[in-house]
Design a protein around this nucleic acid. Sequence first.
DNA 1: ACGCTTATTATACATATGTACAATAAGCCC
DNA 2: GGGCTTATTGTACATATGTATAATAAGCGT
Lengths: 192, 192
Amino acid sequence: MELILATQACIVEGGIRQATVRKIAAAAGVTPGLIRHYFPDKDDLFCATYKFTMTEMARLPVLAAQDIEAGAIERLHLFVRASLSSPVMSPRHHQLWASFTSLMRSVPALAAVHRDSYLEFRQECGSLVAEVLREQRQAVSTRKLDQLAAAVNAVLDGLWLEGCLASDLFEAGEIADIGIRSVDALLGIDSN
Amino acid sequence: MELILATQACIVEGGIRQATVRKIAAAAGVTPGLIRHYFPDKDDLFCATYKFTMTEMARLPVLAAQDIEAGAIERLHLFVRASLSSPVMSPRHHQLWASFTSLMRSVPALAAVHRDSYLEFRQECGSLVAEVLREQRQAVSTRKLDQLAAAVNAVLDGLWLEGCLASDLFEAGEIADIGIRSVDALLGIDSN
DNA sequence: ACGCTTATTATACATATGTACAATAAGCCC
DNA sequence: GGGCTTATTGTACATATGTATAATAAGCGT
């Protein structure tokens, strides 16, 4: 666990390139040899760190959407706002995410982690969308539902990217506002 | 130019990690020393390759949107479809894009390239959106227009990501269809 | 043919890097 | 406390890697 946090720190500070076994060990306050005691090789450590990071990132939005008091639309809005606010939306998380996705091609295990977390997040989008539509007494085919989930997921991903990398172009909370309005538009909800 | 193409090939094949000076030179059919004759260092070669790649990717969508015969909405649709179809949307381009963005932190010059191409693409979105709104006699503030452009840009980015990485989950052309419907919804256009 | 610029190679070097392994320290159960 | 498992270190190695530089070939205008 210490090693995973140290790996995150190294990647955030200098990107994948600088995240060497030695630097990670130094950041964790141990010697390089220890890493191989816990992980068969460096890619395995990266894989564990990737998994941890994705879980960490999905936690807040999913938690926000579990507000049992709220209605479906409100829950979706909470989910969107949590996804498009700090700390989920941050240069730090983008750096981690980008670093790992760039390794998918050379490390198949990382591709599997990505696929898992992607499907999980998209399913969360799908559930929330489904509840909203049910609340609105709107019946749609599963295919249309899947497509709506993909679209909602896409807006969130895209705005998340913009927010992580160009937060200076937006005011505080503006991206989340755009996200909520966009999702409403996608689902045909009349905002205001 | 040969070197830039060789760099692309190496990154696509094995990711940034395997894109070493020697492998790039081998792919280009030259010796490693030649690279330093044209580029001060490796990061500079990466920078040039990134710029080339982004230009390459923006070409088709921008070209498609220049159809002078078509109306504003149709031009926007052509733009969306080109952005969300092969070859713009492909594992190849994703691998290139992901590799370079993961280096932004450690190579500031790459961050500048990213910022430029991002702003350019977003502005293209903005122009197309503005024309559609004008065609619809819909007046909006510049701020709202910027936000709409950001949202359209986000949907395109997000769907592009999904399509590059999970094309097996969609049928041919389905992502582009979703994109067009989503953009229509964002702009309040009644599809069909 | 000459001279100059550009293209290209060959070789070398210092260092960074992932990995391996034997040795030592620490924790813990009986 | 003895003995066993686990945690941790130190060191070594083979190799990959970016970079530097001198030497050579090629192109080309005059």
